[in-house]
Nucleic acid binder design. Sequence first.
DNA 1: GCCCAATTTGCAACCGGTTGCAAAAAATGC
DNA 2: GCATTTTTTGCAACCGGTTGCAAATTGGGC
Lengths: 331, 331
Amino acid sequence: MVTLNDVARLAGVSRSAVSRTFTDGASVSDRMRRKVKKAADELGYRPNALASSLTTGRTKMIGLISNNFHNPIFLQVFDLFTRGLQQRGLRPLIVNLSDETNPESSVDMMRQYSVDGVIVASSTLAPEFAKAFRQNNLPVVHCFGRSNPSPEVHVVGIDNVEAGRMAARELARRGYRKIGFLGGPKEATSTQDRREGFCREAAAHPDLEVSLSYAEAYSFSAGREEMLRLLQDVPCDAYFCGDDVLSLGALSAVKERGLIVPDELGIIGLNDMEMSSWEGIDLTTIHQPIQQIINSSIEMIVSMLDEPDQYPQARLFPCRLAERNTLRAPQ
Amino acid sequence: MVTLNDVARLAGVSRSAVSRTFTDGASVSDRMRRKVKKAADELGYRPNALASSLTTGRTKMIGLISNNFHNPIFLQVFDLFTRGLQQRGLRPLIVNLSDETNPESSVDMMRQYSVDGVIVASSTLAPEFAKAFRQNNLPVVHCFGRSNPSPEVHVVGIDNVEAGRMAARELARRGYRKIGFLGGPKEATSTQDRREGFCREAAAHPDLEVSLSYAEAYSFSAGREEMLRLLQDVPCDAYFCGDDVLSLGALSAVKERGLIVPDELGIIGLNDMEMSSWEGIDLTTIHQPIQQIINSSIEMIVSMLDEPDQYPQARLFPCRLAERNTLRAPQ
DNA sequence: GCCCAATTTGCAACCGGTTGCAAAAAATGC
DNA sequence: GCATTTTTTGCAACCGGTTGCAAATTGGGC
């Protein structure tokens, strides 16, 4: 392992000189810089990022926290986050909170590794997790968090209430009368908000009839099971599923029962994950601008590195309908 | 930020005493330990993992490198790796090599962050990447790497040649005569090995007729496009696709052309990702024991932390057929 | 060539821990 | 109770960098 000492010795200069050539903005003459660079190249020297973090207080590592590693949308989430962070010279340290229930202990983990900030990427993780980071003075952005006008931490995502409205409006517009909400886990804020928007909009259409139900998780099997249950009774004309993967589960159940989509039963999802547009799936869904959401999350966390005491804000992006083949055309 | 100094001062003991109570195996009396713990609890002290790494030379961080963030199998890969590493007190630092072509620069990245070891999780990344780590004395395990009997780095995965044989054998057994290999990218070692096994086994059945083709990537759209192309000509009776997501793309093309699966055309995949067993998909595929592969990779990297100069070995797990609905029953 | 300001350089302390070594304290044997 | 061994403790140096400050160098103006 080549250290700064080795380079200083070979170049015949002080340690500070070496350090300064590798930190931009430092005062070094060109001649010195060249001399040091030459020695460094010769030895293959790379500054140790962790050692420098000791004095600078910056590790350039960002905790990327999630609890949902089974939803295909997370392929995009991971891809976009890792690339975006890398581009800015940051590194994601991943934390899988699938079987962790205690916010405090996850804060401990992040502090032990002195991450500069934390991105919580989940709509099902209790808001207490994000808050716990903030209370421990860790910059935090809650990606896919609750679209509160006065949030306790920075939030980036969509307006779930509005998304719910949009779904109901769309179902109404296409002439479905008995419409159902098939949400994800009841405890998830995303479920609650989407339901609220859905019901509010439905209430504005006096001819609509609404029913509510919930899957146990944002997963294929949970969506399928809930839909199978619903189909034992008299089902609705159309369902708004709280998530695309839930929609696929529901579709699987519907088709198994021999109902024709979208004529006998319509399905609209939310997310527009990559798979949803695959030929043969063709899920009509509410598109979440995930690239923007993630870029914005990264920008936010980066800005907090310089200025940690920002007043928490919510940055919400508009959704749009991705029209495919699981809802019938407007009448 | 509470440091070891603060704790030492409050407890009225030396810094070493505090350090020792938090490193197991160190010599501290019970009385001392209690005294220190009390002060530490009072202040909410957590040792700084990165600071200690400076002297111990261990960061407990493992680089997790991949270039394939679009294949749904990677949901499981990430989930299993992150959990497995966490359980052992290690942390994954993710590197997305999607647009990186230079092994040297990825080595630099990992060295700058002083990871203790690197797991390369990809079958399409050139073996040079894994080798570059080894040449720089970084413990490395190539997960899903080439099943070479005398590899240059530790390899964990399946025997791709054998998997190819298995596919051909299975197609033959079910009475398909004209059989096709629809591989992933030609450059990928996994493609090459699977093709080799496939052809060798086919050659042992004189009545079989074999044709070869390749998709541009392990992706849905690449699989679909290649299959559409094949269907313009006279297609085979059955295809072995080099990966499940490729199979889904192929299936989409086949169904679009109105061919009935598995009677008119059979498809067998490889991987058995979670989706493949979803009702409505029901892909017959060669199951890769991914949990074992990943646990084994983690074990290997852990063992290398203590003993870095191991002779490279390949640890290959047997596959089994996951029989579903895209191949017809044996005659 | 001299004086003064601006720039560059090195010294030394520091970041938050760990660890070899010797001194101090406790345990053991008689 | 004393000598000897074992265990516990603190000192101080070190890990690989950064940075404030003062000394040294350079450059500009005349």
